[in-house]
C-alpha cells in the first residue's frame, strides 16, 4: 500500500544565543526523521555562545529538500524583540506567528494578515522550574498547532540526544515543559 505523502513542514525559529533556538530545531529533525523521508536543519548564529542573533530553519518533507533555506515560512517562532523586528515580515500572509509573550508584546507584531499565538512561555517555564526550558514550551505549542509530529515522538527524541546524560529528573522537567506548551489554550 502506497503511503500517503505528508505535507511539507517548514519552520523558522528566531531568538538569541542561549534560548535554545537550535535545540528546538534539532529535536524536530531527530523526531522528524522517523516520520518524514527527508529533514534539514540549518543554523545561523553570531560568534557568541550567548546573546548573539540566532535563527534556525527546519524542513520536514517526504519530497527531496532542494534548498534548506526557508524564505516565506507558514509558521514562525519568535523569542525576543530584536528577532521580531528582523523576521516578522518573512512570515507568509495567513501564516502563524508563535511568540513568547513575556519577551515580546503582541502589540509589537503590527501585522493584521497573520494569526498571532501569544504564549507566556517564560512564565510557564519558570513555574515548572527554570526559564531555560522556555523553548520546549513554545515547541509544544507549535506541535499542537501544526500537527507536524506527535508529541510523544518529540518527547522521546530528547532521550536520544547527547544531552540524554541529563539526570532523569531533568528529562521529566523537559517533557513537562513540552506538554505544558502543547496543552496551553489561548
Amino acid at each position: 500500500m502506497a503511503e500517503e505523502e505528508k505535507e511539507t513542514m517548514e519552520l523558522v525559529i528566531a531568538g538569541y544565543g542561549g534560548q535554545g533556538v537550535l535545540t528546538m530545531g534539532d529535536l524536530m529533525i531527530k523526531a522528524g526523521s522517523n516520520v518524514y523521508k527527508h529533514v534539514s536543519w540549518l543554523p545561523s548564529y553570531d560568534t557568541y555562545t550567548r546573546g548573539g542573533r540566532v535563527v534556525c530553519y527546519v524542513i520536514l518533507s517526504d519530497e527531496n529538500i532542494l534548498s534548506p533555506l526557508v524564505a516565506r515560512p507558514r509558521t514562525l517562532v519568535i523569542m525576543d524583540p530584536v528577532a521580531m523586528d528582523l523576521y516578522r515580515d518573512c512570515l507568509m500572509p495567513g501564516g502563524t506567528l508563535i511568540i513568547d509573550s513575556c519577551m515580546v508584546s503582541p502589540e509589537m507584531v503590527g501585522r493584521e494578515d497573520i494569526e498571532v499565538i501569544a504564549v507566556p512561555a517564560s512564565e510557564m517555564a519558570q513555574s515548572i522550574l527554570t526559564i531555560k526550558i522556555t523553548n520546549l514550551v513554545l515547541l509544544g505549542k507549535y506541535l499542537k498547532l501544526s500537527g507536524a509530529l506527535p508529541l510523544e515522538l518529540v518527547a522521546s527524541a530528547m532521550t536520544k540526544s547527547k544531552e540524554a546524560v541529563l539526570k532523569d529528573g531533568f528529562l521529566t522537567i523537559n517533557q513537562e515543559a513540552l506538554s505544558a506548551g502543547y496543552n496551553y489554550a489561548n
Binding site: 527527508h38 529533514v39 534539514s40 536543519w41 540549518l42 543554523p43 529538500i65 534548506p68
Partner: peptide, 9 residues
C-alpha cells in the same frame, strides 16, 4: 558555513 553546519540524513 551553510552546508558545513547544516544537518541532513
Amino acid at each position: 558555513a551553510i552546508i558545513g553546519q547544516m544537518k541532513e540524513d
